[in-house]
């Protein structure tokens, strides 16, 4: 029985939406059920590797209902099977359960999502900014942040040759 069938029989309330595009098997999961689904896949379906956690800001996406989509790509290293799990969260307080207790690779991946999109993960051991400086206040990959920034890149003292 494939993982998708197992999921269908376990969560038969119709909350999960299954689809396929090329070779990607995708499952859209409501945020409330996310941890349960991922824990089931990890513990009972043997998806032992979390390859990727990322987010998408759907602010300017045509026909999108929710603000942020968070994507988990999980792999079963035994069978080589790959699943793309997706969930949606919304402003003003985007919050998801951390999957650090399942896969340790979630540590930095979730930190990056927090840094770039401002989505918080409850239960994460150390949710700090990782790529941008600590004093940075914006979330750069949100669609309402301009490509060239808001002048942060030029906010430094200038050294001339005479004084250095």
């Amino acid at each position: 029985m494939s993982a998708e069938d197992a999921l269908k029989s376990k969560f038969d309330g119709g909350e999960l939406a299954f689809s396929q595009f090329r070779d990607n098997h995708r499952i859209v999961v409501p945020a409330a059920k996310l941890f349960e689904v991922l824990a089931f896949l990890k513990n009972e379906q043997n998806f032992d590797m979390l390859a990727e956690v990322t987010a998408v800001d759907y602010l300017e996406y045509e026909g999108a209902k929710d603000r942020f989509g968070v994507v988990y790509v999980i792999v079963c290293t035994k069978s080589g099977e790959r699943l793309v799990i997706k969930t949606f969260v919304n402003d003003p307080e985007p919050l998801l359960p951390s999957v650090y207790s399942l896969w340790k690779s979630a540590d930095w991946l979730e930190r990056e999502v927090y840094d770039m999109f401002g989505i918080r993960f409850s239960g994460h051991p150390d949710l700090r900014r990782i790529l941008t400086p600590d004093e940075f206040t914006a979330y750069p990959l949100r669609k309402d942040y301009p490509l060239k920034g808001r002048g942060e890149r030029h906010n430094f003292p200038v050294l001339t040759r005479a004084e250095s």
Partner: peptide, 15 residues
């Protein structure tokens, strides 16, 4: 890299 993070030329800040 004309982006938010990259300094547009180090000569703006050091000689």
């Amino acid at each position: 890299f004309d982006t938010y993070a990259v300094v547009q030329g180090v000569d703006r800040f050091i000689p």
